[in-house]
Design a protein around this nucleic acid. Structure first.
Length: 355
DNA sequence: CTCCCGCGTG
DNA sequence: CACGCGGGAG
C-alpha cells in the first residue's frame, strides 16, 4: 500500500495534503513542505483521513497539469522525507502554466539562484570530485609566468574530450621530457609528442595542433600565448570553451564564462538559461554562456565552472542524475524528471519540449 | 550533423 | 562488448 507520510509522528491527511499544496503555491512562504518546518503541523494528529494513494496523487497531478513521473512517485514511496520536493515541483508546474513568472526574463536572475549556488557549494565541499584534484588550471603552477601560461594552454588543449586524470598524466610526461614550452614543442618531434600525450582523446590531431600552436606562439607572441580571446580562438584546436578557460586561468582576465557540457547541462536543468526569452533550453554551450552571462554576477563567472563541473561529476550526472541526494532538488525544475532508461533520443526530445 | 579516439560503464 | 561521452573542425 502506497502511503505518503511526512514523518512517522504526523501523517498527512488527504485534505491536508491537497490544501497545503494549493495554499503554498500562492503564498510561497516557505519553499519546503514538511512536518518539522511547520511550527503547528497538524491540529488533528493521527488524522482520520486516509493517506494519499498513488492513483490519487496521479489524478491530482493531472488536474494541476503536473508532470509527475513514475520515478517521482517511486522516489517518494522509497524516501518519504523527500516529500518536501513535491510543492516545488508543483510550483514549477504552476509557473509553467501561468507563464509570466517563470519564463526567464533577459538579464533577470532566476528565483533562488543564490540558494541553489550555496547548496551546490555545500554539496561540493563534502564530496570529492575529479576536478578538484586534476583541474587543468593547476598545470605548471610552479613554473615562471610565461611557461605557466603555456602549460595552461597545452593542458586545456589536451583536456578536451579527455578525462582529467588522463590529461594530468600527459602533462606530467610532457613536463618530465622538457616538452612544455613553445620552444621545446616547436623543436620537438611530433611523433614523440604524440606518444607522450597518448592516450588523450584525438592525440594525433592534438600533437599536430600542438606543433602548430607552438610555432604560432613563437612567431607572433614571442613564445608566450595570445592574450586576447580572438587570438586564442584562432589557434587550431582552441574553441570557445578552452579560450575562455585560458583567459580566466592563464591571464586572470575574465572575458566570459567557461561553459562545458556540465555547465551547459546543469544550467538547463536548473532553468537558469533559455533561448531568447523563451522557455526553450539553450541548444549549445555558446548559447548557454551568453544566456548565463546576462544575469550571473561577474564574480561568479570563474568559480561557476569548477563548481558545476564537480557537481556534474558527482551528483547531477548526465544520465541518471542523483536527485535523491541533491540538496537543491527542491529548487530544480528537472528534479526526478529524467527517465532512467537510455532509450533517450526520441523520449528525451519529447520531454524537453514539454519542459 | 559527422568525424576524430580511447575509455568507462551498463 | 557495444554504446556513449567529450570539444573542435569541417
Amino acid at each position: 500500500m502506497f502511503q505518503i507520510r511526512a514523518t512517522s509522528a504526523s501523517s498527512l491527511s488527504k485534505t491536508q495534503f491537497f490544501n497545503t499544496y494549493t495554499r503554498r503555491t500562492r503564498m510561497s512562504k516557505s519553499p519546503t513542505f514538511s512536518a518539522n518546518s511547520d511550527p503547528n503541523p497538524n491540529p488533528n494528529p493521527g488524522g482520520s483521513d486516509a493517506a494519499v494513494s498513488k492513483p490519487e496523487l496521479r489524478v491530482f497531478a493531472r488536474r494541476k497539469r503536473l508532470k509527475m513521473t513514475e520515478q517521482q512517485l517511486i522516489t517518494v514511496e522509497a524516501k518519504p522525507h523527500k516529500l518536501d520536493l513535491l510543492p516545488d515541483i508543483e510550483e514549477f508546474g504552476y509557473r509553467n502554466e501561468t507563464s509570466s513568472s517563470y519564463s526567464i526574463d533577459i538579464g533577470k536572475p532566476p528565483a533562488n539562484w543564490e540558494k541553489v549556488l550555496q547548496g551546490i557549494r555545500k554539496m561540493r565541499s563534502s564530496e570529492d570530485a575529479p576536478v578538484d584534484s586534476m583541474g587543468c588550471e593547476k598545470a605548471g603552477s610552479a613554473l615562471p609566468p610565461k611557461e605557466r601560461r603555456f602549460a595552461v594552454l597545452v593542458s586545456s588543449l589536451l583536456s578536451s574530450q579527455t578525462k582529467d586524470q588522463v590529461t594530468h598524466g600527459a602533462i606530467q610526461r610532457l613536463l618530465q621530457n622538457g616538452l612544455l614550452s613553445a620552444d621545446a614543442i616547436d623543436k620537438g618531434d611530433e611523433a614523440t609528442i604524440k606518444s607522450l600525450i597518448y592516450p588523450v582523446g584525438f592525440y594525433t590531431r592534438k600533437a599536430s595542433n600542438l606543433k602548430k600552436i607552438a610555432k604560432i606562439c613563437l612567431a607572433k607572441y614571442n613564445g608566450d600565448i595570445p592574450s586576447s580571446l580572438e587570438e586564442l580562438l584562432s589557434l587550431p584546436g582552441i574553441g570557445p570553451k578552452m579560450a575562455h578557460l585560458v583567459m580566466n586561468v592563464a591571464w586572470d582576465n575574465v572575458q566570459g564564462i567557461c561553459v562545458d557540457t556540465h555547465v551547459h547541462r546543469i544550467c538547463n536543468r536548473l532553468g537558469w538559461v533559455s533561448r531568447a526569452g523563451k522557455k526553450q533550453k539553450t541548444s549549445n554551450p555558446e548559447e548557454t554562456r551568453e544566456a548565463l552571462q546576462l544575469w550571473l554576477p561577474k564574480e561568479e563567472w570563474v568559480p561557476i565552472n569548477p563548481l558545476l563541473v564537480g557537481f556534474g561529476q558527482t551528483v547531477c550526472t548526465p544520465l541518471r542524475p542523483r536527485c535523491g541526494v541533491c540538496s537543491v532538488s527542491e529548487f530544480c525544475p528537472s528534479a526526478f524528471k529524467e527517465t532512467s532508461s537510455p532509450l533517450s533520443k526520441t523520449k528525451k526530445s519529447g520531454l524537453s519540449k514539454k519542459l
